[in-house]
């Protein structure tokens, strides 16, 4: 055990050269280089960041709180963009919807709901998938076979179908008085549960490779607890691909949420997500109030597209072989 850190430091008290600052390190990295050389990615990053920031800060920066009835005036309904409500002093950048709500503000709050559901669902899928993938890859044998077979089944069903089924089952199980308050969690559960398999597969593969390596074998012989090995040695090595799947998964989850809400099995209309806003807005497609549909739809596409572009770039950047 010559490389025991304690002994090393005692014998050779070196003063290491001042490490470059974290920022410097980041700016010098390959990742940053590839980022800087891809204008599309730069635009995507800023778009995504702006949208996420706006969503996070909605309660503080939105011109109106569309869910505070005191500021609403139903008579302002259908005010066109860039004009003032006929019955109040409210000014509407993107117009008002059928309830007199400021579309610009509902989009801010709506992205918040969409991002929350998307992020939570992805996080849930990630935790579940990484956990099962690690267990599967590390243990092998029967556990591996069972988990992977389930993942196979799950992968062959489209996520939207699984989410719909879970939603249908939940509708039947939850008493009516609880359904609305539970809706958002049911949605997160349903979307999360329909997306874990990709994580599990990738992590399993990487784990199997890592497991064969000497340092893992050494740690095992030393009697380190398997959980610790997984956490300390294997997990960091599989984080790259997990991050890529997670980013693309976030875009997928956002679209999935929108689709479910569009099909009428999503969040309630008084706490709308982008998908709910689109479902409501499409009712006014023929009657000329295009802004109720148009702005939420554009926001959704921008959000999904920018996250997708980031995921695409991340995959290439982390996997130089593909370049």
């Amino acid at each position: 055990m010559t490389n025991d850190p304690m002994t090393t430091r005692q014998i050779e008290p070196v003063i290491p050269p001042r490490p470059p600052g974290l920022l410097r390190q980041a700016l010098d990295s390959d990742m940053f280089y590839s980022w800087r050389n891809s204008p599309v990615t730069i635009v995507a990053t800023f778009t995504a960041a702006a949208l996420i920031l706006v969503a996070l800060l909605a309660p503080w920066i939105a011109p109106y709180n569309p869910f505070n009835p005191a500021t609403l005036n139903l008579m302002d309904g259908f005010t066109p963009p860039m004009s003032e409500g006929a019955f109040s002093d409210n000014w509407f950048l993107m117009g008002a919807d059928h309830q007199g709500r400021d579309v610009f503000s509902t989009i801010m709050y709506g992205s918040r709901v969409s991002l929350f559901v998307g992020a939570m669902a992805t996080l849930f899928a990630m935790t579940l998938g990484v956990g099962l993938g690690l267990a599967s890859g590390y243990n092998g044998g029967t556990i591996d076979a069972v988990i992977m077979r389930i993942a196979d089944i799950q992968l062959s069903f489209p996520a939207i179908l699984i989410a719909l089924l879970i939603f249908g089952v939940a509708r039947g199980l939850i008493p009516p008085s609880q359904q609305e308050s539970m809706a958002i969690w049911v949605l997160i559960f349903a979307i999360g549960l329909s997306n874990w398999a990709q994580f599990a597969r990738t992590v399993r593969g990487a784990t199997m490779v890592e497991r064969q390596k000497d340092y893992v074998a050494a740690a095992r012989i030393m009697g380190v607890h398997p959980a610790l090995i997984l956490l300390r040695h294997i997990l960091p090595n599989v984080l790259g691909p997990v991050l890529v799947i997670g980013t693309i998964g976030l875009a997928l989850a956002i679209i999935e949420e929108a689709t479910l809400s569009f099909l009428g099995v999503g969040v309630p209309p008084t706490q709308p997500s982008l998908g709910t806003l689109i479902r409501i807005g499409q009712q006014y497609l023929f009657s000329g109030e295009w802004w109720i549909l148009f702005f939420p739809a554009v926001t959704l596409v921008l959000l999904a597209l920018s996250v997708n572009l980031l995921g695409d770039w991340l995959r290439d950047a982390l996997n130089p072989k593909l370049r």
Partner: peptide, 14 residues
Amino acid sequence: VGMLGRIGIRVTLA
């Protein structure tokens, strides 16, 4: 929901 909200009755819509 909006109209009742103005007099303090906070309504959740199902």
